[in-house]
Design a protein around this nucleic acid. Structure first.
Length: 470
RNA sequence: CGGGGAAUGGCGCAGCUUGGUAGCGCGCCUGCUUUGGGAGCAGGAGGCCGGGAGUUCGAAUCUCCCUUCCCCGACCA
């Protein structure tokens, strides 16, 4: 007699599966205010791993961390016309503080281009002050109409990079560098998520940007998720905030700025990319817990061997957790670790011990086998490496099998019901983009046939990736 | 804001049509037996049924108003 499934199966109701997994893997809870979320310790540990990996890459690209205020004068937002138009509907505004009406309302930052622009203007005088490469880890607030835990919450955590350069070419080069060396590299090598790196159409561009570039990933249900963006802001914000400098020729010039960010949305993307009907599957390079050593039953020799096993793994640099809670059944604990997506579970009981072995359960490929305790560390290291590769390969295979090359709008609509469509931008155009929009389908990005980034909105030969999205 | 739903112990739900002041599953607590794939049995704790007004001898149930939440669309990291 089969027990009911732990989670709603993906094939039955994907959104329900997503909600179930977030609750049962103890990732997050809904907050008391609509659209807010409480990130629970396990979910937060995943975010911390993401932060560490992204932060290291950002620093390697030369940017330095700083921190700007949560509150921004409302007037700052209005200085850049497109920016204010884009963000006004979703601003949270404080009008009363300290028990009285404020002279000028302050907005809770939806993003920090404006306040950072104001200070860049102060700090930049000379071409020698450029490039100015800043990043901050912060929370931002956007009063979204339809929130979804991790994917679109009223308040979310992110990093936002803001840079100023002497020329358009320098700004562009840096925005592209971040896109590839920080975002794409992190998503591919750590999250094991293949992403399409492309250019947004004018319709999808960030409010105030001259060019928005994106990393798009396919989820388990074939829909797309924007995992991160990098923007060229041209001189729009430099004009609005007077970020000027004197060039080496002695001329007064305006800087060229960029901004770029990834957020807690990536946690949602990770869940929907790799999760299955048994729970999460966390790629080993990201996993806060890579291996759980589980004592199957109460037994002094077993407990002792579990401890030394965990120490051996720890010494080899493996992130390991000991599970000695023998008062809870082994089956329950196994199920819980599977829900949490820990890549490898080592089950040790008297039977294993008698054979000098341990039961190695691979969460990623689903196999379960006896492995000799002798040499187990090396074995684990190779299993983890293999799991990382497998997850990426599976995600890539899904994306390829569910992406269709088409030439017409009806074909694109058909393809978008199960996955993505690739259609020449010349065959679609702004009118076709609008038509797809009426059916809930968007152009995720434009890419060149060789996978590179188009230089402009109308670069000949560009291919549009169209899909339904989160 | 437009169109659909729903508010009942921590979570998921039944009860409402045909009023008589609550019940089920999971979870939680205690004990015993268990422990190699979500343990079993027994005994417990926990809810003024979203808020307000009304009808009535009596309202979770009927009427009206309000509030909130969820799903589908427009917005988005």
């Amino acid at each position: 007699m089969a027990k009911p499934p732990v989670l709603t199966p993906q094939s039955e109701d994907f959104p329900r599966w997503y909600q179930d997994i977030i609750a049962k893997a103890e990732m997050a809870d809904n907050g008391p205010v609509r659209g807010t979320m409480v990130i629970r310790p396990y979910g937060y540990s995943i975010w911390e791993q993401m932060q560490a990996e992204v932060d290291r890459r950002i620093k390697a690209a030369g940017a330095k961390n700083a921190y700007f205020p949560l509150f921004i004068p409302e007037s700052y937002l209005t200085r850049e016309a497109e920016h204010v138009e884009g963000f006004s509907p979703e601003l949270a505004v404080v009008t009363v503080a300290g028990g009285k009406e404020l002279e000028e309302p302050v907005v809770v930052r939806p993003t920090s281009e404006t306040v950072i622009g104001e200070f860049m203007a102060k700090w930049v005088q000379s071409y020698r002050d450029l490039p100015l490469l800043l990043n901050q880890w912060a929370n931002v607030v956007r009063w979204e109409l339809r929130p979804r835990v991790f994917l679109r919450t009223s308040e979310f955590l992110w990093q936002e990079g803001h840079t100023a350069h002497v020329s358009e070419a320098d700004g562009r080069a840096y925005a592209v560098r971040i896109l590839h060396e920080v975002y794409e590299s992190f998503m591919r090598d750590v999250l094991a998520m293949p992403v399409v790196v492309g250019r947004k159409t004018a319709k999808e561009r960030f409010a105030g940007a001259t060019n928005t570039m994106t990393c798009e990933a396919m989820m388990g249900d074939g829909k797309a998720l924007q995992m991160g963006t990098s923007h060229e802001l041209g001189q729009n914000f430099a004009k609005a905030f007077d970020i000027g400098f004197q060039s080496s020729e002695g001329q007064q010039e305006l800087a060229w700025t960029t901004s770029w960010g990834v957020s807690t949305r990536m946690v949602g993307g990770l869940i929907m990319c790799h999760g299955d009907d048994a729970g999460l599957r966390i790629p080993p390079r990201l996993a806060p817990v890579q291996v759980v050593v589980m004592a199957v039953r109460e037994d002094d020799a077993v407990i002792e061997r579990c401890r030394t096993l965990a120490e051996e793994l720890l010494a080899a640099g493996v992130r390991v957790e000991l599970d000695l809670r023998t008062e809870t059944s082994a089956g329950r604990r196994a199920t819980d670790w599977e829900l949490k997506g820990v890549p490898v579970r080592l089950e040790l009981g008297p039977r294993d011990l008698a054979e000098g072995a341990v039961t190695l359960v691979d969460r990623i490929d689903g196999t379960k086998q006896a492995a000799p305790l002798h040499g187990i560390t090396a074995r684990i290291v190779s299993v983890l490496e293999e799991a990382q590769i497998t997850l990426f390969a599976e995600a890539l295979a899904r994306r390829e099998s569910r992406t269709a090359d088409v030439r017409s709008i009806p074909e694109a609509v058909e393809a978008a019901s199960t996955g993505w469509a690739r259609i020449p931008w010349a065959d679609l155009g702004v009118a076709g983009e609008a038509e797809l929009g009426n059916q809930g389908i968007t152009v995720r990005c434009l890419v060149m046939p060789d996978g590179s980034l188009p230089d402009a909105d109308d670069t000949p030969g560009a291919i549009a990736i169209v899909a339904r999205s989160y």
